[in-house]
Design a protein around this nucleic acid. Structure first.
Lengths: 208, 208
DNA sequence: GTCTATATTGCGATAGAC
DNA sequence: GTCTATCGCAATATAGAC
């Protein structure tokens, strides 16, 4: 018995997470997964009931932080509009750092939804959108944010500026546009631009 | 002879563009393409030398506007920094309207590059990045843009805010966040936020 | 729980009739 | 230029040995 050795099912999940993220569901074979996991072709059916069952198990693990994020979001509805948006920005960055492959599964499920992924993503998306739209609405009503903004487009713009970076990061590293990317620095830089962009241009100096 | 009928190869390209965009290269079979194009399995090999040759032909057609955009970019280096960024924003919107599947191929090629797509995208990306970075740099030096911005992250933020919307649009329509999306309106709303976000907070009123 | 061997299906590609 | 028939291969899934 090898104490260090991972249990086969967890090893299969870890290996297939990378393969599914990098090549897509259809392009990965269970043979490939088995070999990379030092197992055999029948293991995937034995533990997960087939290739589709394995994919579902992978998605379940990947989407956990999204499900948790919905809870946090509900707990933060009493903050100021600006603080709520800032809280969202920090969370996006944290979640992507926790799960480096998550952005690939989210994009992949957006382009070609599978039943399980579709359900999670759509529920998550609706909750996040409602949170952002309400925060923007409150900020406009309290005179902090510009009143000439389209709320839907402005909410989408925040999600865009925060998420797209994590999708594009591997490509930007490849072409040397990003050499040593610091996720928190990007998020902070992007959120500062966005926040100044939606605030009313008051003409008073601000402390920072 | 049927005058209205499309030539078979063009019909195959049109059908397979949609299929490749929606399902990905590996998940589409030449049998499926042939049937949807009212042709037969041997047509793909006959006209394009196989499935890979067909995919390359599809990418070539999809990426044409990107190649053209590089020419326009070079012609607009004499404009003011702000005008150059605005020119870029309009072009992104135009290109995606021309080619509704383009964003899917760009994302797909970013996640899982194929040799042909990789070459085009990387070249395009480098040119666009250099254009944006130079425009931002010029704007900072001439005192129009804030000097506390990281140029790389700020350039990525503009590309993010303008492009991600087109990637997410189908999903946002599905969950009824976008009901009747107007691409030009989104682009204008997003670019105004971004521009105010990177400009120096002068405390003088601006005409608009 | 893990393996080998195998059944079955569907793939891309092509030869050859028309 | 378009079709059918078929070859060879690789896929998933499973039966059954250990």
């Amino acid at each position: 018995m090898n104490i260090i050795k991972k249990y086969t099912p967890q090893k299969i999940i870890d290996i297939s997470t990378r393969l599914f993220a990098e090549k897509g569901f259809a392009a990965v074979s269970v043979r490939e997964i088995s070999m990379d996991a030092d197992s055999n072709v029948s293991a995937v059916s034995y533990y997960f009931g087939g290739k589709s069952g394995l994919y579902k198990a992978v998605l379940e693990e990947q989407f956990l932080p999204l499900i948790e994020a919905m809870v946090y979001i509900k707990e933060n509805e009493q903050l100021l509009p600006e603080e709520r948006l800032s809280f969202y920005a920090e969370n996006v960055s944290k979640i992507h750092s926790q799960r480096p492959y998550l952005s690939k599964f989210m994009i992949s499920e957006s382009l070609k939804p599978t039943p399980y992924g579709k359900e999670i993503i759509e529920k998550h998306l609706s909750q996040v959108y409602n949170f952002l739209a309400k925060s923007l609405q409150d900020g406009i009503q309290s005179g902090v944010f510009r009143d000439d903004l389209d709320i839907t487009y402005t909410a989408v713009a925040l999600a865009s500026i925060l998420n797209f970076y994590f999708v594009a990061k591997p490509l930007l590293k490849n072409v040397k546009i990003l050499e040593n990317p610091q996720d928190e620095d990007y998020t902070q830089n992007a959120f500062r631009i966005y926040l100044q962009g939606i605030k009313i241009d008051k003409s008073m100096n601000e402390g920072m």
